[in-house]
Simulated assay, not measured.
Amino acid sequence: MTTMIGYLRVSTEEQANSGLGLESQRDTIQRYADTHGWEVVWYMDEGLSAKSLHRPQLQAALTRLHSLPKQRDVDGIVVAKLDRLSRSVHDFSGILKVSAARKWSVVAIDLGVDTSTPTGKLVANVMMSVAEWEREVIGERTSAAMQAAKRQGKHMGRVSALPRGTGDRLLTLRATHTLAGTAWQLNAEGLTTATGAAWTSNSVCKAQHRLNARQGTEPALAA
Results as ranks from 00 to 15, higher is better:
L179P: 01
A183N: 02
L20V: 13
A33M: 09
A50M: 05
G112C: 10
V159H: 12
K121H: 12
M156V: 15
R169E: 12
A197C: 11
W104M: 06
G153A: 00
V40M: 01
R141N: 05
A188M: 04
E39S: 11
G120E: 06
S105R: 13
L58Q: 03
A197H: 14
L179A: 04
A222I: 15
T217Y: 01
T117R: 06
V98E: 05
L65I: 09
T176L: 05
L111D: 08
D83A: 02
E189K: 03
M4K: 09
E189H: 06
A180H: 02
I95S: 03
I77M: 02
R164T: 14
G181V: 01
P56A: 09
A220N: 13
Q30W: 00
L85M: 13
R87F: 00
R158E: 11
I138D: 02
K154V: 15
T28A: 12
H177I: 03
R169I: 08
V126I: 15
G76M: 07
H209D: 13
A145I: 11
A197D: 15
A222H: 11
T217P: 01
E39M: 08
G21P: 01
A198W: 14
N125W: 07
P69N: 08
A213P: 08
L171D: 09
Q208A: 15
S143L: 12
T12R: 11
C205F: 14
T115E: 06
A124F: 04
L68G: 06
S201G: 09
T176K: 08
D45G: 06
A220E: 15
C205M: 14
R158M: 07
S11T: 09
S86Y: 00
N125R: 14
L111K: 10
T192E: 10
L179V: 06
T172L: 11
Q30F: 00
A144G: 05
I138F: 09
S49T: 15
A80L: 03
G139C: 11
T63G: 08
Q208D: 12
E39G: 08
E134T: 02
